[in-house]
């Protein structure tokens, strides 16, 4: 089981801020493929991953990163702080 978090328009598009996901995905990209296949709202949120960023256990990472040992995955658009 892995905690998956969504922020900003990704959260709005999917309709929830976080969920527990049962997955055997080896990489972030594999997890994205599983989520996309679930429902239209997921497919819409993950239509273009170049518009998204991912963090693994609260560290910025990449879509080709392995998920082994990861407890928390977060998907969000590019950050707009400051």
């Amino acid at each position: 089981m892995i905690d998956v978090l969504y922020f900003a328009w990704v959260r709005e598009r999917i309709g929830l801020p976080r969920e527990r996901v049962e997955t055997g995905a080896a990489t972030v990209a594999d997890l994205v493929a599983e989520l996309r296949a679930r429902e239209e709202r997921y497919a819409a949120a993950f239509a273009d991953t170049s518009a998204l960023r991912v963090a693994l256990d609260q560290e910025l990472s990449g879509f080709d990163a392995p998920l082994a040992g990861v407890r928390e995955v977060a998907f969000f658009p590019p950050m707009t702080g400051g």
Binding site: F7, P78, G81
Partner: peptide, 27 residues
């Protein structure tokens, strides 16, 4: 802080609200 701290701004206006897009210039 603008592009590496996880904050997201949403502008609120009389005609609705919109997420602020990151600018290429910030990167």
């Amino acid at each position: 802080l603008k592009s590496r701290a996880p904050f997201w701004k949403k502008e609120l206006g009389a005609e609705g609200s919109e997420w602020v897009a990151a600018k290429d210039a910030d990167e």
